[in-house]
């Protein structure tokens, strides 16, 4: 393949940036979910969630 350095570096950098973006989004989501679970555990809940819970038979 001609100009292999330029082609593979392009795909490599595009791949690294994309994977970093995916990893950052997934890890950010997990961290937020953990925080929400911790708040839930300490019995702090959204008013709407609490209201829905009390309306259940």
């Amino acid at each position: 393949m001609s100009h292999a350095f330029y082609i593979y570096t392009s795909y490599g950098i595009a791949g690294i940036v994309t994977l970093c973006l995916i990893a950052w989004t997934v890890l950010d989501g997990r961290a937020r979910r953990r925080e929400l679970a911790a708040l839930e555990a300490s019995s702090l809940r959204r008013r709407s969630a609490a209201a829905a819970e009390t309306q259940k038979p």
Binding site: T25, R32, E35, L36, L39
Partner: peptide
Amino acid sequence: MAIRNEIWRRRVATQR
């Protein structure tokens, strides 16, 4: 996914 994360972030801030 990022919108969902931001909604969660704001909920955490409100609850805190």
